[in-house]
């Protein structure tokens, strides 16, 4: 996959995470409020978390192309302006 296409796909995948997390607040307190069994809120939170882990696996796959062994290393911070 072209890097720019991959980046765009990753951005979309990442954007699903806040939506899923918002649903993890809202759904158990509304739709599943009275479902007092294991396939209620517990299952919803579990599946939502698995989806988020899958996003993490997919997006971080791009990190495997190791970029930076050759990067300049360990330059000490410049003497910052003092307050």
């Amino acid at each position: 996959m072209q890097p720019s296409v991959r980046k765009s796909a990753h951005t979309w995948l990442l954007a699903t995470v806040p939506v899923i997390m918002l649903a993890m607040f809202v759904v158990p307190y509304t739709l599943l409020r009275t479902v007092d069994t294991w396939y209620g809120s517990a299952l919803f939170w579990t599946l939502a978390t698995l989806a988020v882990i899958a996003v993490n696996v997919a997006v971080s796959a791009g990190w495997s192309q190791d970029e930076a062994a050759a990067e300049p290393e360990g330059q000490l911070p410049g003497q910052g302006d003092e307050h």
Binding site: L14, V17, I20, M24, F25, A48, I53, N56, S60
Partner: peptide, 11 residues
């Protein structure tokens, strides 16, 4: 589990 999802910030 919400905490665990928050670790996505590491991405």
């Amino acid at each position: 589990l919400l905490y665990l999802c928050g670790v996505t910030l590491v991405l």
